[in-house]
Computed example of a mutant assay.
Amino acid sequence: MSIPVDLADLARTLEQYGPGYLLSTAGESVKAVSADPVLSDGVVVVAGPGGGSLRNVTANATVTLLFPPREERGYTLLVDGTATVDGDDVRVTPGHAVLHRPVDHAGPDHAPGSTSSCGHDCHPVT
């Protein structure tokens, strides 16, 4: 189950999540590192992710930021984007974002107080 997140709402959505992970790929290697991204003027800045991540971004600018759910069976926030290296930091221009969880995690007990008409697995971004 994936629910698109309007990039105009990304800052508000990010406030609901804690630290995330920067995933970048280059050639045959994949690197995932803990990060505390900050959204600034529409760009997600990841401070000092490390040399391996910087090399990966230099070789392949496509990255994904993953923010795990804050509650059991909650939604993971995935932000895909294009990255550049800026000194020791990585700057990600978001291209697409979704809230995602397996469909089998849905259920009426996971949407307390929901007034949405889109079903018990709908999670509006507010």
Score class of each variant (00 low, 15 high):
Ala106Val: 08
Val5Ile: 13
His100Arg: 15
Gly42Trp: 00
Gly87Trp: 09
Pro124Cys: 05
Arg91Cys: 14
Arg12His: 07
Asp89Val: 08
Val38Tyr: 01
Asp36Cys: 10
Gly18Met: 03
Arg70Met: 04
Ser29Ala: 04
Leu78Glu: 12
Gly74Trp: 04
Ser117Asp: 11
Gly51Phe: 09
Val125Tyr: 13
Gly87Val: 13
Ser34Lys: 11
Gly81Met: 02
Val30Met: 10
Thr13Arg: 11
Tyr17Lys: 01
Gly107Thr: 02
Asp6Phe: 07
Gly50Phe: 07
Asn56Thr: 05
Val43Leu: 04
Pro37Trp: 00
Gly74Val: 08
Gly113Gln: 04
Arg101Met: 06
Pro37Arg: 02
His123Glu: 07
Phe67Glu: 07
Thr84Ala: 09
Ser53Lys: 02
Ser2His: 14
Val125Phe: 12
His123Thr: 06
Arg55Lys: 15
Lys31Asn: 15
Ser2Lys: 14
Ser53Asp: 05
Leu22Glu: 04
Ser40Lys: 15
Asp80Glu: 03
Pro108Glu: 03
His96Gln: 06
Gly50Pro: 11
Gly113Thr: 06
Val30Asp: 05
Ser24Glu: 03
Thr126Met: 09
Ser24Tyr: 03
Val38Lys: 12
Leu10Lys: 11
Val57Pro: 04
Gly107Asp: 02
Pro19Lys: 12
Ile3Glu: 13
Glu15Arg: 15
Asn60Val: 01
Ser40Ala: 15
Asn60Lys: 02
Ala35Glu: 00
Gly113Ser: 05
Leu22Met: 04
Ala59Ile: 05
Gln16Asp: 14
Ser34Thr: 13
Ser114Glu: 02
Val5Glu: 05
His123Gln: 07
Asn60Trp: 01
Val79Phe: 08
Ser2Pro: 02
Lys31Gly: 11
Ala11Asp: 15
Pro37Leu: 00
Pro124Met: 03
Asp104Phe: 12
Asn60Gly: 13
Val103Gln: 15
Tyr17Ile: 02
Val38His: 04
Thr13Ile: 08
Gln16Glu: 15
Leu39Ala: 10
Gly20Ala: 11
His100Pro: 06
Asn60Glu: 07
His123Arg: 08
Ala35Phe: 00
Val90Ser: 10
Gly48Leu: 05
Gly50Asp: 10
